[in-house]
């Protein structure tokens, strides 16, 4: 679930599709910045991870969350809502990474406090570029809360 314990940045990837998660992880690995990616499969796991419950007792606090919207059990909107209502977790930046390009989803996400909204590009190269620029932006350009 985790890789490279010595990496300076922690990313939590919330994605139900393993193939999609695989692509995202690969894109992140190709990036120039060393980071540790933790992958959970739905909103319930994501919240457990963030609150270090049960199996996630020793989980790190992520520096960035890549959140899918449509997932089983607890979807991205619910995660976003709960996250932003939690005074401890609300400072972690959340990037929505979804196939949806509906205005309603975009607006709702920002309204709930999402920091970015990315529609997964159909083309692999474009997708890789998008992931890499996310990595670049959040870990190199901006300053994160500590």
């Amino acid at each position: 679930m985790t890789q490279d314990d010595s990496a300076p940045f922690d990313i939590l990837l919330v994605e139900d599709d393993p193939a999609d998660a695989g692509l995202a992880k690969r894109a992140l690995r190709e990036g120039r910045i060393l980071c540790r990616v933790s992958h959970v499969r739905d909103g319930v796991e994501a919240m457990d991870f963030l609150r270090r419950k049960d199996q996630f007792a020793g989980a790190p606090r992520p520096d960035l969350i890549l959140l899918d919207l449509n997932m089983p059990r607890m979807d991205g909107r619910a995660v976003l809502q709960e996250l932003k209502a939690d005074s401890d977790l609300k400072t972690i930046p959340v990037v929505i990474l979804t196939t949806s390009d509906v205005d309603r989803d975009v607006n709702a996400s920002y309204l709930l406090g999402a920091n970015s909204f990315i529609t997964k590009p159909m083309d692999m190269d474009a997708f890789f570029d998008a992931i890499k620029s996310v990595e670049e932006y959040w870990f190199r350009v901006v300053r994160l809360p500590r």
Partner: peptide
Amino acid sequence: LQEPLRIIASYAQL
């Protein structure tokens, strides 16, 4: 259908 299609195309490209 776009979702699995994206996966197919992406992995083929990969």
